[in-house]
Simulated scan of single mutants.
Amino acid sequence: MTRTHWAAITAVVLALLFAGAATVASAGGNDAAAPRTPSTASADAGFARDMSVHHQQAVEMSFIVRDRTQDEEVRRLAYDIANTQANQRGMMLGWLDLWGLPKLAADATPMDWMNEDGGHASHGGGHEVQDGSLMPGMATKTQLEKLRKASGKEAEILYLQLMIVHHNGGVAMAEGCVRLCTVGVERDLAQGMVDAQRSEVELMVDLLHKRGAEVMA
Rank of each mutant, 00 (worst) to 15 (best):
M114R: 02
M114G: 03
S199R: 07
G152N: 08
H127W: 15
R198I: 01
L144T: 12
K103N: 11
M51G: 11
D67K: 14
T140D: 04
T37E: 14
K141W: 13
M193A: 14
H167Y: 12
T40Y: 11
A174G: 13
A82Q: 06
I157R: 01
A48K: 02
A7L: 02
A8R: 02
G192M: 12
V183K: 04
A11D: 04
E72N: 00
H120P: 03
H55N: 13
M204A: 02
G126R: 10
V215D: 03
L77Y: 06
E128M: 15
W95V: 06
T37Y: 12
L77C: 05
A21M: 13
Q56A: 15
L160K: 04
M92V: 04
F18A: 14
K149M: 00
A82W: 03
M111E: 12
L16E: 15
A139W: 05
P110V: 08
D71N: 14
E116A: 15
L77D: 05
R89S: 13
K153Y: 00
E202K: 09
W95L: 13
G192P: 12
W6G: 07
M138W: 03
M1K: 07
M193G: 02
I157K: 03
G124A: 00
T140C: 07
N30D: 14
A32P: 00
A196S: 13
V59K: 11
V65T: 07
D44Q: 06
G94N: 07
D188P: 09
G152A: 09
A196V: 10
A45N: 02
V65S: 07
R148E: 01
K149L: 02
G46P: 06
Q57P: 04
V185T: 10
G124P: 03
M61R: 07
V194M: 10
D67W: 10
I9G: 01
I164N: 07
S133M: 07
D206H: 13
T69W: 05
G29H: 04
G192C: 13
A213M: 01
V59C: 12
M51D: 12
A33W: 03
V201K: 00
K210P: 04
Q143H: 00
R198S: 10
H209S: 09
E145D: 15
E60S: 08
L208E: 00
A172S: 14
M138G: 06
E186M: 15
A43P: 07
R187C: 01
A150Y: 07
K141H: 15
Q56I: 10
S199Q: 09
Q191W: 13
L208P: 05
A108H: 10
E186I: 15
L180S: 06
V59E: 12
T84Y: 08
L134P: 01
T142H: 15
H166S: 05
D31V: 05
T40P: 10
R36W: 11
L104P: 00
D112C: 09
A41F: 13
E72K: 10
G46E: 00
S42I: 01
P102H: 03
P35C: 08
E175R: 15
A86M: 13
A34T: 04
I157G: 03
V24H: 11
A48M: 05
A19C: 13
